[in-house]
Amino acid sequence: MESRKEDARRMVSVTINGEMRQGLAEPRTLLAYFIRETLGLTGTHVGCDTTSCGACTVLFDGEPVKSCTVLAVQADQHQIDTVEGLETDNVLHPLQQAFWDNHGLQCGFCTPGMLMTSVALLQKNPHPTESEIRHGISGNLCRCTGYVNIVKAITDASHKMQKEPAEV
């Protein structure tokens, strides 16, 4: 039987982590699933489907969004950044390194979303206070760490990222 939904699929092109990728998506396909299942980048996780947990956070034209609440077709011709794009030349992003150094993760499921939110936070506010960090990541749920070491990791990364330009 011919499917109506099959007919409704359209090509979606995105620049993801700097690479041009495209794939077919139904109009209702959520960006999170397009990234995970169509493009095969499974670092972006789905924890709630209701914009609550933030495990699916990616950058959409540089802004953090919960990709379970964006349609894949809305991302057509836009730029997406996911956790897979944070590392450069086998060197961890300072935030990835800081999460590792400070025990900022346990089960690791919320970590990719937490990292992407943190990347955006530090871009907007390179010297956040503890309170600013806590508010900045309040859309991302973590059930393991109690956030203590996540806050520490983001603070640590913010210091290191400030030092780097001077060293270069």
């Binding site: 995970r36 980048l41 499974t42 670092g43 972006t44 996780h45 789905v46 996911t82 956790v83 897979e84 944070l86 590392e87 961890l92 990835q96 390194q97 999460f99 590792w100 993760l105 690791g108 499921f109 970590t111 990719p112 990292l115």
Partner: peptide
């Protein structure tokens, strides 16, 4: 952690 901070954990889904 090195695999988990890279989003390279292998969870069920």
């Amino acid at each position: 952690d090195p695999r988990l901070v890279r989003g390279q954990g292998r969870y069920l889904d």
